[in-house]
Design a protein around this nucleic acid. Sequence first.
DNA 1: TTGTTATATGATTGATTAGTCATATAACAA
DNA 2: TTGTTATATGACTAATCAATCATATAACAA
Lengths: 103, 103
Amino acid sequence: MDKTYIRAEILRALGQPTRLKIIDFLRDGERCVCEIFPAISEEQSNTSRHLSLMVSSGILSRRKEGVKIFYAVKRPEILTIVDLATTIMAQEITGRHEMLLAA
Amino acid sequence: MDKTYIRAEILRALGQPTRLKIIDFLRDGERCVCEIFPAISEEQSNTSRHLSLMVSSGILSRRKEGVKIFYAVKRPEILTIVDLATTIMAQEITGRHEMLLAA
DNA sequence: TTGTTATATGATTGATTAGTCATATAACAA
DNA sequence: TTGTTATATGACTAATCAATCATATAACAA
């Protein structure tokens, strides 16, 4: 129940390439596993594990409909965080580029 | 140079309890290692490793002054991300609480 | 019922990680 | 010079992680 630990868990859940690919794919709305894993070119079982991890970290929501399970980004703040990471990445790349030019 | 991988690296650097404690301590401005490690109750060597990791991930900046090395949060977006994670955590806790009440 | 599709999970492997202890380096003071 | 303080790093360990393969479960169709 440590708050630092819970915050870290949320951010750690976002900090993995396969999971980021899933989140990017879910930007347009909910999708079932059968749509997600071919879209990100990962195995079904691996995709399923990452989806479960993100549900238990509070990143994704899960909805069952017949045989299919639909996943969606649970809160808009998630996408804001990912977008801010993109901003930081862009600034880093610019910065490193300028360092190279100056050298 | 994969962009998904770089974004993941930034978020992963934020998603660890000891590193979150460091970032929280650096909210008020730059601090040297000798101030940081007692404040977060971690070993000097462990703290130094986490600081180096965050510098190479683009999270912190490093400034040398005599014997001391001062670290600071490199970009305001970093703190925004951490604050959003706190918001998500609060919503998660509220949600789980309501589920308990409803059960 | 049997077959098919969608998803989850046990068992395993190799890689990465956080943390510790001891030591190295570097800057400055006396 | 010697001593002291601040920081970084090599070597190591135990724990966690991502990915894979095979298999289990669950829902529905024929």
